[in-house]
Design a protein around this nucleic acid. Structure first.
Lengths: 210, 210
DNA sequence: ACTAATATGTGTTTTCTTTCACAACTTTAA
DNA sequence: TTAAAGTTGTGAAAGAAAACACATATTAGT
């Protein structure tokens, strides 16, 4: 199955599997079946096996999967066998929270640059040692620090402008926290983290249907 | 079409439509075609019409949709024609950022209670006027303040325990920011906001495929 | 050896989602 | 009035994703 088109949902699930496997590995579990992993992830076990089959054969029939090995393979597939360098734009409340979010580092995501447009903030040192640069300095700072992923934590109005600048600096991946759609050319990736979309989903499901 | 099963993706798109329509309405545009809206949302125009058709007929053939009316209807469908009361658990960096995130209020989501387990924080007053309660007080505080949505902004280890407490207090919707899967019984809703899942997606797409 | 129990990998089937394509309707203009 | 242009709403077709079900493989026990 190795060369079929891979569903986007598969990638998201791989990410979930890796999260669960990490926990499982910490508990010193050596082997896990797709059935057991499926229960933990609340998915169908065939789904897991199919997802993995896009990339190879990682289990042993009659036995299951070696937890550490599977985790290693999934991380390799996702590209998490190395560090990813991030630059954040917008050092407000949310930006600061993200900068000090330890989970990023644990997963190999590291902030290497921070930008803002508030003169009060420029040149200030952050808890993690980074200095806040003016957004106009993005081109050279991003190049010097090797930013690969741009994180947008600005108000919605600025988001597209910031995205355009990131694109111009050839930063090919954007994680957008502004509650607005961002448009990028082919070859560039955007992922939106929109809290209110999630809340809207909850509100819909809570609301009585007429 | 009114009584068919509605795809989950439809709800998420409605949320996106409403966001775009809000912007459009601010620009004083009165009427919009599904074609135009589709372009702005980067979806197919038939998709939009189909999504809406699950809930009724909101357009005028040969004309398009009246922006304000459509926006109103979508918000009504999503249950956003009223306020939703949220309680947050975990007042760390992320929790504080969420508490002061103005977008929530703009969309009708209001924090009415905050909880933590750090003795240093209990009884402290937040910028928005709320007082931090001990998590053990969740049952009565949640009841008194009318919490309908629980927001989890704690480390992953606590997340399931907190979820269980929320469930026990009959809070039927949970927005989970901890990077871990949460299990809830039927009739309860969870939405996960997991930054690293999104980053993993980006990493995958950036990584060269062998 | 052989059998029973267990578990993967995947071709096939089923289910779910999206897109197409066109009848039905509105508006404008002659 | 009629025609032309534009746009919705939706049945039908196409496409994508998930689940089934079973051949294949491993292990353990006798």
């Amino acid at each position: 199955m190795k060369y079929a088109k891979i569903p986007a949902a598969t990638i998201t699930r791989l990410s979930m599997y890796s999260r669960v496997l990490e926990r499982i590995a910490e508990e010193d579990v050596k082997i896990i079946s797709s059935e057991r992993l499926a229960t933990l992830c609340e998915v169908n076990s065939a789904q897991i096996r199919k997802d993995l089959s896009y990339f190879g054969e990682f289990g042993v029939r009659g036995v299951g999967y070696y937890v550490k090995e599977l985790l290693f393979e999934i991380k390799r597939i996702l590209g998490l066998n190395r560090e990813w360098r991030m630059g954040i734009v917008g050092v407000g409340n949310l930006g600061l929270a993200l900068l000090s979010h330890e989970n990023f580092v644990k997963q190999g995501y590291v902030f290497v640059a921070a930008f803002d447009n508030d003169p009060q903030k420029i040149a200030k040192k952050l808890p993690n040692g980074l200095v806040i640069h003016h957004i106009n300095d993005l081109p050279w700072v991003a190049k010097n620090t090797g930013v690969e992923v741009g994180v947008i934590a600005t108000p919605a109005i600025w988001a597209q402008d910031i995205a355009n600048r990131l694109i111009k600096s050839n930063i090919r991946a954007i994680l957008n926290f502004a509650p607005t759609q961002i448009h990028v050319p082919d070859g560039f990736q955007v992922e939106n983290v929109d809290f209110t979309v999630k809340l809207d989903n909850l509100a819909y499901h809570l609301s009585p249907k007429s």
